[in-house]
Amino acid sequence: MHIMLNNTPLQLATHCTVAELLQQQQLKTEGLAVAINNVVIAKQHWSKHQLQNNAQVQLFQIVTGG
């Protein structure tokens, strides 16, 4: 399966959930937000939400700011 992760192509061997993708990428989930095809995915749905082929996955992080 093929997805775009922050505009970088990524091949996934099998179907996986948002939570599994973050785990594979070794990303801490604190301060992280996920949108798929420009729709924000609630944190509580990350473990159930299955990625579809060609999904545009965008990850965002909290940073300092005024």
């Binding site: 922050n6 970088t8 965008q58 992080q61 700011g65």
Partner: peptide, 30 residues
């Protein structure tokens, strides 16, 4: 207040939030 940006996958992330959580501060994202 805090802000958002697109995650840079190739860069390490500072642990910004743990100290703020410990100080029991209301976080206000912009």
């Amino acid at each position: 207040t805090l802000a958002l940006k697109r995650l840079q996958l190739d860069q390490p992330r500072d642990d910004l939030l743990s100290p703020l959580r410990e100080m029991n501060i209301q976080l206000l994202p912009n």
